[in-house]
């Protein structure tokens, strides 16, 4: 198990290093970064002065070293637009995205897992048809389209939910979500829901026909005992990785959903930063989301290893 964790940790660090490499050289590849920072009619002397001040005249490898050193402590420089540290802007927007992603994940799990279990346990039944339908819808309907439809129906026509924006509720100094999160979270979680239904269904179908399930029956256990102790426990282990990967995807913020629903999260910030060609901010967001995804994958692998005795007691 220790070796397993160490090797995953090493892989994660290598991936992050690769991400930093790409982020840094992408900026170089788009042309002279200084041109982004000066006004359109700056004189060559002014441009040279900025280049000097920003250190862009140093050898690339030195600049890259500096960039890495900054990245390690979360310093990506100031946002060109907001004139404040890019990381501060990210941390400011983070709670909104976390709220949205967590809600989306819970909704997806609440619908996806039970539906997958019911479908997989009763192949060919009405539940199974529903499960397969939900899986298909989740994977084919674009979430921004669904978000628009939901807004039209539940916000505009029925008026049950707000059409856009994030409202929170303060309770004992804690910021709590309100119903404003329901609509964007549902749209965002749709794809994850589809994945969970499909995966749970096929895992249950596969495990049902395993030899050890037949052994469980040959011991005289009841259907319920067999489902809970033998089928579900085995299906839950690979489910851990799907959920972990999906949470990473949800947490990296959705440009579409956050923009359509005016949700003040990371996706929204990223859309704005791209629009402004705010390079420091784009770099910071790109690295931050990679960090979140890589960390989550690492945690997922560890959780998976803990849950599966073949890894926990393996070498």
């Amino acid at each position: 198990m220790q070796r397993y964790i160490l090797s995953r940790l090493f892989q994660s660090i290598m991936i992050l290093f690769g991400v930093l490499f790409i982020i840094f050289f992408m900026l170089q590849a788009t042309g002279d970064p200084v041109s982004l920072m000066v006004s359109r009619n700056a004189s060559p002397e002014e441009i040279e002065a900025v280049r000097e001040a920003m250190g862009f005249n140093r050898p690339l490898i030195v600049q890259f070293g500096d960039f890495i050193a900054g990245a390690v402590v979360g310093d990506f420089g100031d946002s060109l637009r907001h004139k404040q540290p890019a990381m501060d802007l990210i941390l400011e927007r983070l709670p909104a995205t976390v709220e949205l992603a967590t809600t989306a994940l819970f909704m997806a799990m609440l619908i996806g897992i039970p539906l997958g279990l019911l479908g997989g346990s009763n192949p060919g039944s009405l539940w199974d048809t529903l499960a397969r339908g939900a899986g298909l819808i989740g994977q084919t309907i674009p979430n921004f389209w669904l978000a628009l439809i939901l807004i039209i129906v539940f916000a505009v026509k029925l008026g049950w939910l707000p059409a856009f924006g994030r409202e929170t509720w303060q309770f004992l100094g804690i910021t709590l979500p309100t119903r404003s999160v329901i609509l964007p979270a549902f749209a965002l979680g749709l794809f994850t829901m589809g994945q969970l239904v499909r995966f749970t269904r096929s895992a249950v179908m596969e495990i049902r026909s395993e030899d050890f399930v037949r052994t469980a029956y040959s011991k005289g256990l009841s259907d319920r005992q067999i489902y809970i102790r033998h089928i579900l426990r085995n299906a839950a282990i690979p489910l851990i990785s799907i959920i972990g990967v999906q949470f990473g995807y949800l947490l990296s913020g959705s440009i579409y959903i956050e923009t359509i629903c005016s949700w003040p999260g990371l996706g929204n910030l990223l859309a704005e930063a791209i629009g402004n060609r705010d390079f420091a901010l784009v770099q910071a967001i790109a690295f931050f989301t990679s960090l979140v995804v890589v960390t989550l994958n690492l945690l997922t692998d560890i959780a998976y290893g803990l849950a599966d005795p073949r890894i926990r007691y393996g070498d």
Binding site: D211, F212, R214, T215, A216, S218, K219, R233, D308, R310
Partner: peptide, 29 residues
């Protein structure tokens, strides 16, 4: 099943639940 008639299967690796201790698997019956 398991009470008056016991069953031994061919491949014990696939016939035993990989995520349950063998003690539990015997105790179950």
């Amino acid at each position: 099943r398991g009470g008056r008639i016991g069953f031994i299967f061919q491949d014990a690796l696939s016939a035993l639940n990989p995520v349950m201790t063998v003690g539990r698997q015997i105790a179950e019956s």
